[in-house]
Amino acid sequence: MSSSGIVFSIIAICAILGGLMMITLKKVMHMTVAMILTYFSIAALYVLLTAEFVAVAQVLVYSGGITILMVFGIMLTYHKAENRDEEKVSSFRKLITFLSVATLGIVSYFLVAPVDFVAEEIFVGDHTKAIGEILYTNYIIPFELVSILLLVALIGAVLLAKKDKEEANE
């Protein structure tokens, strides 16, 4: 096992640990913080796959942006008695879900196990520059569409979360 193998194992263990903590912890705030571990491990995984730009974007968008959004969501909707109803999910339903998800996992494992592609150096030099060039030539229309999508989401989120006028006056 080479150094990269060891690094990969550590990253993988951290990612799975974060996911399991997300499933098992009781408080929602703890779950959100546990997810940071997973998001961050995935970013480290991208570095291992020589995708630095995607890794940094992952840290910026997920660990920085989405997690903070979630935390705000929790704080604005929560007061006390956090998970009073969390346990209402019957253990039978949990078991059934677990079994089906596990089946899915095992089936896809047998699909994935024989995959033995060889890693190739896809691009020598500055990945970031290459990504930028492709993004602004081949993928310019999807790129512009995403920018419109983000604008719409921004305005929509502001409008949805804004208080109604009568409500604010009360």
């Binding site: 940071i36 840290v59 920085g64 903070i68 935390v71 704080m75 500055d126």
Partner: peptide, 26 residues
């Protein structure tokens, strides 16, 4: 010597906010 050095700084420093919010909440 990262070729995304600037973005790395911004991304990683954003993580500290979570610690501060978590401290305030906890």
């Amino acid at each position: 010597n990262l070729n995304v050095g600037v973005l790395y700084y911004v991304g990683i420093s954003g993580l500290s906010i979570i610690g501060i919010v978590a401290a305030g909440w906890a």
